[in-house]
């Protein structure tokens, strides 16, 4: 075999779907009518998609920060997979938000240009972000990463599961794709929570501390912003208060198996959904947006 033949053999995509990472993306929106359905307010749909999209974008960022720092190489691959899944969800949701923005019945909301996913990700300031604060907290140790992933993905899976029957077909399709992914994330986090909680004295202590640090942020997962209330009423969104029972049951079961105490429920509140964030989000955005903002109008 000559060198050139070998290169040719390798360049041929004969079983790339089986081996290559990062290729073979399916379009989950193929064949779906992307127009905003009757009875759905474009501005509300956009605002709602931003909430779910920002959650995924910021959570993905925190997982990206783990890259090259994971406790074992196999876990590098797993965390990167989860970060990629969430980034994919964020892109679809931001794109949907951008497309829906110009279609509101409110005349003042009409804009000529559709905002792209990148315009929304890189050119909004912190107060315009709509993610819950749980995802913006700075990273801690691996126990912190795992407990946050457990809380986040348990909550998100419950939301996405209900969104598969959203009145917005695009949101329903994004949710259908996301359910499979987030179910895997939740499993991953649950298995690790049990290993760490019921592992060594040190791992138990660290996991318990992570739970103490993160638990207060769970109240925000069930606070109902007015956009969410209207989205639920119009049939394209979910009232987050409705998923609390499922969250409590799943998290309670995992913590029991992990020999960890289940903290008392935190009163629901609205903060990040209304644009109230910690300083951590500003620092995160400075890192994420710096280069894009240094070259306004550039294509990458």
């Amino acid at each position: 075999m000559s060198f050139d033949n070998a290169l040719g053999a390798i360049a041929e995509d004969n079983d790339e779907a089986r081996w290559a990472f990062g290729t073979g993306f399916h379009d989950p929106l193929a064949g779906i009518d992307a127009s905003v359905p009757d009875g759905v307010d474009g501005a509300d749909l956009a605002a709602y998609c931003l909430m779910l999209g920002d959650d995924a974008l910021v959570m993905s960022h925190r997982l990206q920060e783990w890259c090259t720092h994971a406790p074992e190489l196999e876990e590098e691959v797993a965390l990167a997979n989860i970060a990629l899944d969430l980034l994919g969800q964020a892109r679809l949701l931001l794109a949907r938000a951008g497309a829906a923005m110009g279609t509101g019945q409110d005349e003042t909301a009409l804009t000529e240009t559709v905002l792209t996913e990148d315009a929304l990700a890189f050119f909004r300031d912190a107060p315009e972000f709509r993610n819950v604060r749980l995802v913006e907290e700075p990273n801690g140790d691996f126990a912190h990463a795992i407990v946050r992933l457990l809380l986040f993905s348990t909550w998100r899976l419950a939301l996405l599961d209900r969104l598969t029957s959203s009145a917005d077909p695009v949101l329903a399709a994004v949710a259908a794709k996301g359910v499979k992914e987030v179910a895997y994330h939740r499993d991953h986090a649950a298995l690790w929570t049990i290993r760490l909680g019921d592992g060594t004295e040190e791992s138990h202590r660290r996991t318990r501390r992570a739970l103490d640090v993160l638990w207060p942020a769970t109240g925000e997962l069930f606070g109902v912003h007015e956009v969410e209330r209207r989205a639920a009423a119009a049939g394209f969104g979910v009232d987050p208060a409705d998923v609390r029972a499922e969250f409590d049951a799943v998290v309670g079961e995992v913590l029991a198996a992990a020999a960890l105490p289940c903290p008392a429920p935190v009163p629901a509140e609205v903060a990040g959904r209304g644009g109230a964030h910690s300083a951590a989000l500003g620092a995160l955005l400075a890192d994420m947006q710096g280069l894009a903002r240094a070259h306004p109008g550039a294509t990458w």
Binding site: G22, H61, L73, E76, L84, G88, R91, F122, W300
Partner: peptide, 21 residues
């Protein structure tokens, strides 16, 4: 990865670095 100037480039880069692992 965290500083990539578009979400598409970010996804590609993350996938690539994951490949290296």
């Amino acid at each position: 990865i965290t500083r990539a100037p578009s979400l598409r480039r970010k996804a590609i880069l993350l996938a690539k670095v994951q490949d290296e692992a």
